[in-house]
Structures are given as C-alpha cells and as structure tokens.
C-alpha cells in the first residue's frame, strides 16, 4: 500500500480535483452508457410484449 493515511489518499498530493475528476468523469460516463443501453433494451421488450398481445 502506497498511502500513509486516508486524507493523503484523498488529496492526491494536491492533485485531488484533477485525479478524482478524471476517474469520476470516466466511470460516470461508462455507468451512464450502460444505463442508457439497458433502458433501450427494456423499452424494446416492452414494445414486443405489447405486440404479442
């Protein structure tokens, strides 16, 4: 383990905003993409069910 304390980990040697910002943006975008694809799939299967009835 590289870090001595939790606050050290959060501050990232003063680059906290940039480092956490980058990781945040990346995983937020990926999460959003998954959510959107999943919503699209649900919408289609809903439409298919209605078609079947």
């Amino acid at each position: 383990m590289h870090w001595q304390s939790f606050s050290e980990f959060i501050s990232m040697g003063g680059y906290g905003f940039y480092v956490w910002g980058s990781f945040g943006v990346t995983f937020l975008a990926m999460g959003l993409e998954l959510w959107l694809v999943n919503k699209r799939r649900q919408r289609i299967s809903q439409a298919v069910k209605q078609e079947a009835i």
Partner: peptide, 9 residues
C-alpha cells in the same frame, strides 16, 4: 507526483 495517476484512465 500523484497527478500522473490520471494515466490509468
């Protein structure tokens, strides 16, 4: 320093 960690994404 620690700023390089952005490289991982």
């Amino acid at each position: 320093g620690e700023g390089y960690r952005i490289i991982f994404v």
